[in-house]
Design a protein around this nucleic acid. Structure first.
Lengths: 204, 204
DNA sequence: GTCTATATTGTGATAGAC
DNA sequence: GTCTATCACAATATAGAC
């Protein structure tokens, strides 16, 4: 019977692979570095996952699934448009703060293999088209300015993702490399972003 | 006397290196691929640039200098805050549309070597702190809402950069992979982004 | 399941002829 | 300046003992 407290070799590999792939990307990651990080033998990587490609696949799905629950939850709730915007910004930023290297990692994959990522989204049941529809309905109901829902969704994503993806430079330029201050800055954005978007819509 | 119409070997290498490095990143780029792209012998890469590192350096400076003139021009002009926001969005998006792979490339470098990038900015005379000051002055003068200038600058950058960095997926999800439509969408953002930001400030 | 040893191929870089 | 040949080493992957 397997020990439920000590991590299995497979889990140690996965944890190490996450760390290395997410920090260094597909081509920057080295199998020997992952083995070192996991404190196991290099050969075991191949025993458990056969190839680098398959190991990467597993890690990518892990990273991808970090988002899915919070995003789906927000989209499927029966809240108003403005409440959903607040919910998404809050949850998205929370996840990203805890997983700072995911944005760049995902952006890289978006450019390397967009079609597979799109399929993953479909399989996971993430359908921005539904949010799209909801925005249009809400705009008619609330008699607010008729903006392109795509612009709104992409603005929301941009405002959440970019400050994490570009963090090392932004932190250096605007906060003299003070990690704590930047963290507070990101926390503040949980409220700033929805306010920013909603204000803009209202004054249309 | 050298022919001013046919590209020199050095320029052919630089053009090819731009293409490969910008698409594949530092660790994904292969010297033999650059040579192939330039239709020259692999050894010539080392003859002209000695190492992969030095060749990358040259390419990065090229990419970096794509932004500097337009940004500096916008920041140094004696226009009002709102006019500057309009100018920056317009010029930034124009440059990015023509150089679609630069955002990811720069984001990757931001995470790989932020300190060197910061130094490059300093040398190039790009000082966001000055824009920072100007926002605060303008806010007092125009009696507009007192928001954190850093939030404003980062919002502006995010809204310009993200739609290009994540283009392959966004184009797929929201525009059924129609390149022309996505191009129009980006063009529209030249006006949408400043309107978005300015509306938000006004309704504070 | 885990290890050592090794095969195999890829990749940056150099030497030296022309 | 350009080419061919080759080095040195790094990286993924496999074979086979235990």
């Amino acid at each position: 019977m397997e020990n439920r407290f000590l991590p299995s070799t497979e889990n140690k590999i996965l944890a190490a692979a996450k760390k290395v792939f997410i920090h260094k990307g597909w081509s920057g990651a080295r199998m020997h570095e992952i083995a070192e990080e996991a404190k196991i033998n290099k050969s075991l990587l191949h025993y458990y996952f056969r190839t680098k490609e398959k190991l990467f696949e597993a890690v990518f799905k892990y990273a991808f699934n970090k988002f899915v629950p919070s995003i789906k939850e927000a989209l499927n709730s029966d809240k108003s448009l403005f409440e959903k915007i607040e919910l998404i910004a809050d949850q998205y930023i929370s996840v990203l703060i805890k997983n700072q290297f995911i944005p760049l990692f995902v952006l890289h994959e978006i450019n390397r293999n967009p079609e597979r990522l799109y399929e993953l989204m479909q399989q996971a049941g993430v359908r921005p088209e539904e949010f799209f529809e909801q925005i249009q309905q809400e705009m008619r109901k609330e008699k607010i300015k008729n903006i392109d829902p795509r612009q709104l969704i992409i603005n929301l994503l941009a405002l959440c993702v970019f400050p994490i993806a570009a963090k090392p430079l932004l932190q250096r330029v605007f906060f003299e490399n003070d990690k704590r201050q930047y963290r507070q800055f990101l926390e503040a954005r949980k409220k700033e972003i929805p306010a920013f978007i909603i204000n803009s819509i209202k004054s249309g």
